[in-house]
Simulated assay, not measured.
Amino acid sequence: MRQPTSDKENFRNTDGRIARGEATRQRVLDAAERCFASDGFEAVTIRQIARTAEVTLGVVSFHGGSKEDLFKTVLARRVATLDDLRKAALAEVRARGEMTIRDVVDAYLTPYLDIASRGDPQWRAYAQFIARVASNDDYFPEVRELYDPTARIFIAEFQRLRPGASAEALATVLTLTVASMLSIVASRARIAGLSGSDAIDQPMGYRAMLIDFCTGGIEMVLPSD
């Protein structure tokens, strides 16, 4: 005769199902991220994502929703990590004393360069995906709520250091800084092709040059008085 299942066994079984469900969800999101990165949002289909994740169409819909839902979720799951690292870097600079433009640029760029240099293929896919998104204004209404809050924190720091700068100039210098960062992380083939030598293997290898480049541009553009 079958013995009644104990509360402990029920908990273990439920906990196991939750863990497997979360693992499947992450597999679906990872697959969507890779597909969006390689082919762009418009060209990707739910069937393609299911095939890449090695699950059924129903599983993709259950864990990810529509293609539009997947788009938002794939972006959002990286934002919290980056936001926390950038805010922590900015807080560390504040704790040391007076900030400079270079300090603010460093706090914004370095967390992303560091993560992108760790060899995680999914972060590599995200880098390619977000580079696509950032270059297309059609996506802006979908991503502004994700990225603008932290962007405005850094714009406020630039404004504090350069109070005479216009809102347009402040937004422009941050946008150009982000574009430079995304370009270095997403692909360095152009550098290798133009230089005739191998590009630096990891984005962090360009950290000092990228920070100098962005800092110099910002200091030239934003008035110091």
Rank of each mutant, 00 (worst) to 15 (best):
D148K: 14
V133T: 04
Y126N: 06
D114G: 01
A116H: 08
I49E: 05
A37T: 09
P149Y: 07
A43W: 04
A91M: 13
D114I: 06
V104T: 10
R86S: 11
A76L: 07
A53V: 05
E54Q: 07
D103C: 13
A107N: 09
S38V: 07
R160C: 01
F140A: 14
L90K: 06
R152C: 07
A165W: 02
S135R: 06
A53K: 05
V55L: 09
Y147N: 04
P141N: 11
D148I: 08
V93F: 12
A95T: 11
E22H: 01
D69W: 01
R34S: 11
R94Y: 10
V74L: 04
R132C: 00
S38D: 14
V133N: 01
A88N: 12
F129A: 04
S135G: 03
A116L: 11
S117V: 06
L29T: 02
R118Y: 03
S135A: 14
D39E: 13
I155H: 09
L113G: 04
L82E: 11
A116E: 09
F158P: 06
V60Y: 10
R152P: 03
T100M: 12
V133S: 03
F154K: 00
V55I: 10
R96E: 07
F140E: 10
P111C: 07
T24P: 02
R118V: 01
E54K: 13
P149W: 11
T110I: 15
E142V: 03
V74P: 04
G64R: 00
D114A: 10
